[in-house]
Structures are given as structure tokens and as C-alpha cells.
Amino acid sequence: MSVDPMAYEAQFFGFTPQTCILRVYIAFQDYLFETMLLVESVMLKKLNEFPGCKISPFELRKSTEKFLLFMKERFDKLFSTMEEMLLQLVLNIPKNTLLPEDKVHEQYPYSKEQFQVLQDEVHQLQEQYRAEVAAGQALHAELEEQKVVQAELEKILQWFDGLENTCRKYGISSFKESFTFLAQNSKKLQDILNDVEKKSKKIKKV
């Protein structure tokens, strides 16, 4: 059998030419063996029809095997010639032939160095893409954080609006007066709380 890998032919046919030829060889060989067994069985049947025949089945088997060996040797030589013909004429793709899927290589030929440059560019673009994805994720996280801060600021503004409305209710027009008012009321509340705690302690002692 041929040792040439014939990769291009395997790509085109979907199987290696050597595998195809091997299967054909095995099929022919099996057919030869089956034929010889059939011939042997017919000869045995014919011998049984002749009374006093001195040829035994064992001798017939030896003769059949000898003839089979002779036929196999001739078959192998013939098949060797047939294999060479199949590999060269039938299952061979000429060197100047391009498969349809390889036409692009003819239109856009690249040397090994040019291909390496393209690979480097692809690697660089992949790195840039990863960096942009990471920057996008960081920006998204920052925007989420800004949303939280914005929500807190809105709460503070609402609190100031409520404070301003309360101040207007009590006739206080500025924030300074508002804080003074709150501080005074806070001190009054603290004093009341302290007075309540003292009275509570006295009651417990009694």
C-alpha cells in the first residue's frame, strides 16, 4: 500500500484513497476465499458420487489451499498494479488543482511572515476589545454608584424642602434662623427629657 498521506485527496473525497483501496482489496480477497470454499464443496460432492475414489477430503483441502495460495500471489501482483493505477489516475488530484474552498488562497496569497503579522493584529484587536469591555464594565459600575448618590442627594433635598416649609410655617425666613430655631427646640427637648428622667428616678425611689 502507498505511504503517501494524500491529504488533499482525503479533503476532497472525504476519505483517504488508501483506505478505499484497502477496502476494495479486502472485498476481492474475501470473494476469492468464498469462491474457493464453494469450489471445494462442489468438488467434494462430485467425489462422493464416484465409487472407489481414492482422493480423500484432506488431500482435496491441501490441493485447494495450494491453489488458493497460488491465486492469492497472482491476485496480489495484479492488485499492486491496479492500486498504482487508481492512485495515479482515479483517486489523484493534480498538483495545479485547487478545491473550491481553497480558491480564496489563490485570490489572497499570504506568506508565512504576512500570516504572522495578521495573527499579531488579531491578537492586538482581541486585547483592545478586552480592555474596552473592562472599561465599559467599570463605567457601568460608576454610573450605578452615581445613581445611588443621586438618590441620597434627592432625599437630602427633600429633607431641606420639608425643613424650609416648617420654617415658613413658624415665620422663619432664612436657613441660619432655621438652624437657630432647631437648636433651641432641640435644647428644650433635651431639657424636658432630662427632667422626665429625674422625675422617673424619684418615683422609683418612692
Rank of each mutant, 00 (worst) to 15 (best):
E145N: 12
A135V: 01
K198H: 06
S80R: 08
F160V: 06
I93S: 00
Q146C: 08
E101T: 08
T64I: 01
Q158D: 14
N48G: 13
A141R: 11
Q18A: 13
Y31W: 11
A151D: 15
L118Y: 08
V133A: 02
K62I: 06
G162L: 05
E59P: 02
I26P: 01
V206G: 13
C20R: 02
A135N: 05
E142G: 01
T166H: 14
F181T: 00
Y170M: 09
N96A: 09
S174W: 04
I156M: 12
Y108H: 15
F70H: 14
M71E: 10
K176F: 04
K112V: 04
Q146V: 06
F28Y: 06
F15A: 13
K155Y: 07
A141E: 15
L69N: 13
K201E: 05
K198A: 11
S111I: 02
E144S: 07
W159P: 00
P17S: 02
A134H: 10
Q126Y: 05
A138G: 01
Y129F: 10
F67W: 09
K188Q: 15
A151P: 02
A141S: 15
L99C: 07
P57M: 00
E106C: 08
E101Q: 15
E106K: 11
K188Y: 10
K205R: 13
Y31N: 14
L68N: 02
N185D: 11
C20Q: 04
S200E: 07
K54W: 00
V148F: 05
E142L: 15
Y31F: 11
Q190T: 10
M6P: 03
K112C: 04
K77D: 12
R74Q: 14
D30N: 14
A131C: 03
H140W: 07
V90W: 07
F50V: 05
S174N: 13
K62Q: 15
D195F: 06
L69G: 09
N194I: 11
S186R: 13
K45Q: 13
Y25E: 07
F12G: 03
P51R: 09
S111D: 11
V3A: 12
I203V: 12
I203L: 15
K199E: 09
K204S: 10
E84P: 00
Y110K: 13
K201F: 00
E106R: 07
H105T: 12
E49P: 02
L68D: 01
Y108N: 15
V104I: 15
Q158L: 09
R168E: 12
D76S: 09
K204G: 00
E34S: 10
P5W: 09
L78E: 09
D191W: 07
Q107I: 05
E59F: 05
F58M: 05
Q29R: 08
L44A: 01
L125S: 03
I93L: 15
Y129A: 07
K199R: 13
P57Q: 05
A7E: 14
G14Q: 10
G14M: 08
Q158W: 05
